[in-house]
Design a protein around this nucleic acid. Structure first.
Length: 549
RNA sequence: AGGGCUAUAGCCAAGCGGUAAGGCAUCGGAUUUUGAUUCCGUGACCCGCAGGUUCGAAUCCUGCUAGCCCUGCCA
């Protein structure tokens, strides 16, 4: 990756630099630890970029580790999708691990804790455990199970493992402090029974470690030095350290917490995203309106723009709400020089150039990207009948409208000046066709300077035009709506479909090809809906515009 | 007397005792065969508030205030 990854500063880099400088570590190891229970989204991208680039910048290593300790929610489908998304983002992990590969090791560490009288099997029901835990304002109380002998605990824990108990009948708890002001330390459950098949270990286990016990062990086993997670785990840090210390794995991973990403007009919670998918608000995890990596990819966002975005938003500890326009900015910036510029009419209006010879087609020169000459030129057709954008004509325009209207002359991009002479309407009074005349002297590239026009319109020549479908996306979530559930904020009109024309030379456009459609924005050939006879384009983002009616 | 954390422009964010980086957005202006791009210009008499220490404070101390997180056998 050639991008400069070290020009930003954040508190985690400070910590790493210091750890390296004072010899705490010779080499750092980070990890990205997704639970395979859903698809990755742009919030994960923030964490991925942080962890991978931190390791790269300081010549360390990074592990991709699936935190698969709860078989009830996890699935191989998600493992595959997550790997694909990380690779697509442009990152390579040094090692691939699964928490489930450490189950045996974790089990033996749990036994060690029991032997050290630091863990015990609990008889209380889930409800009782909750009651005994106390509340934010009052201490918890100790359960009778707490004073069980080591031998009995060992025997019961083995029975748990052997499947002698039903789900929920027993749990293993760490013996810490039922009166701690930090509720996470009030004898947290570290193993539960779940007679569930695991995507990786099958039916080998019916007890599974809890995150708070498993995660620190995973980090310690792998020699992770800097374990980065989000703010809501701050209260768990004392427990994390407790597990590492008492499990006697001689490693000292440290947990650091940073603020998760929030984006305007977006939800970034796996639970909510899953709900949007399950309840058919969208067409799957990769729906172009979804903030998932796969959705952004299908929409047309580039990996580079997502990476740049993730770097530029920074990493800190204060809650934040980043404007989506920032993401869009980096997409435009990335595609500006990379995407060929072509003309597409999204909502066509026919124009007949009455003084242009019938049956004649001429081919005009058009550059593919004036800001990037290497992209070359192409020929585009021009003839008596063309399509322009419906919104580029107004019969009765306001002041400062410099597109087409009766009596006004405009430039057709790469072609000629045309002047509107006549408006054809149907019986309902709708404008169905415009009659114009062109001036042969004004041909583009001829150096004509006789007079100027204010507006330049894009067009598609009618006989060669290729039909296309456009999918114009609007925010899936609208922050300004009101409601209690996030579903009240879902925009029912987030997908707008139109049909129009693109240049004939788009014939060889393939899924995921990206273009700038003149005056419209950046578009991507949709990989799911495009067929042999119909190109379907996703609008990635619009061009910026200061035009107001 | 619950505990943990955060507070720098509309939104992100740097800053680590020496006199407020940068990006996004906004609004002007110039250039323009995209009302795009590009280019220039635009905002903190001040860093949540109030005191204090210091020659000097966004940075150190004290006290407030506001917001977020924590009572899953989720992660």
């Amino acid at each position: 990756m050639s991008e400069n990854t070290s020009n930003t500063s954040n508190f985690i880099k400070h910590i790493v630099k210091e750890d390296l400088a004072n010899g705490t570590h010779k080499e750092i190891i980070t990890r990205f630890p997704p639970e395979p229970n859903g698809y990755l989204h742009i919030g994960h991208a923030k964490s991925i970029v942080l962890n991978f680039e931190l390791a790269a910048e300081f010549n360390g290593k990074i592990n991709l580790r699936f935190d698969d300790t709860n078989p009830l929610k996890e699935d191989q489908e998600y493992v595959d999708a997550i790997k694909e998304d990380i690779s697509w983002l442009g990152y390579e992990w040094d090692n691939l691990h699964f928490a489930s590969n450490y189950f045996e090791e974790m089990y033996s560490r749990a036994i060690l804790l029991i032997k050290k009288r630091m863990a015990y099997v609990e008889d209380l029901s889930q409800e009782e455990i909750r009651e005994y835990r106390g509340s934010l304002h009052e201490a918890g109380k100790e359960s009778d199970s707490r004073s069980r002998s080591v031998e009995e605990n060992l025997e019961l824990f083995e029975k748990m493992k052997n499947g002698d108990f039903a789900n929920g009948e027993k749990v293993l708890r760490a013996k810490i402090d039922m009166a701690s002001p930090n509720i996470n330390l009030r004898d947290p459950v570290i193993y539960r029974i779940s007679h569930t098949e695991h995507h990786n270990t099958g039916n080998t286990w019916c007890i599974y470690p809890m995150y708070s016990f498993a995660h620190p062990l995973e980090d310690a086993i792998e020699g992770v030095t800097h374990s980065l997670c989000t703010l809501e785990f701050e209260d768990q840090r004392p427990l994390y350290d407790w597990v590492v210390e008492h499990s006697e794995i001689h490693a000292t991973p440290r947990q650091y917490e940073f603020a998760r990403l929030n984006l305007t007009n977006t939800v970034l919670s796996k639970r909510k995203l899953k709900q949007l998918v399950d309840e058919n608000y969208v067409d799957g995890w990769d729906d172009p309106r979804m903030p998932t990596i796969s959705g952004l990819r299908r929409r047309g966002f580039t990996a580079e723009s997502i990476r740049t975005f993730a770097r530029e938003i920074g990493v800190a500890k204060s809650d934040n709400l980043v404007d989506v326009r920032m993401l869009e900015h980096f997409l435009r910036e990335d595609l500006k020089l990379k995407a060929p510029r072509t003309m597409a009419v999204l909502d066509p209006l026919k124009v007949v150039i009455t003084n242009y010879p019938e049956g004649e087609v001429e081919w005009l020169d058009a550059d593919n990207n004036p800001e990037n000459e290497e992209m070359g030129t192409r020929k585009i057709p021009f003839s008596r009948e063309i399509y322009i954008e419906k919104s580029d004509f107004m019969e009765d325009p306001p002041k400062k409208y410099f597109r087409l209207f009766p009596g006004n002359e405009v430039r057709l991009k790469h072609a000629y000046f045309i002047k509107c002479n006549e408006v054809i309407k149907d019986e309902d009074g709708n404008v169905v066709e415009i009659h114009c005349t062109y001036d042969p002297e004004t041909k583009s590239g001829s150096g004509f300077t006789g007079r100027k026009v204010k507006g330049t319109l894009h067009f598609v020549e009618a006989t060669q035009a290729k039909k296309a479908e456009y999918r114009l996306y609007h925010s899936l979530i609208e922050d300004e709506r009101e409601g209690d559930s996030f579903l009240d904020f879902v925009n029912p009109d987030s997908l707008e479909i139109t049909h129009g024309y693109v240049e004939a030379n788009m014939d060889d456009a393939k899924p995921q090809d990206k273009f700038q459609f003149f005056r419209h924005g950046y578009f991507n050939v949709d990989s799911k809906h495009t067929t042999e006879d119909m190109l379907v384009f996703n609008r990635i983002v619009e061009l910026k515009s200061s035009f107001k009616l």
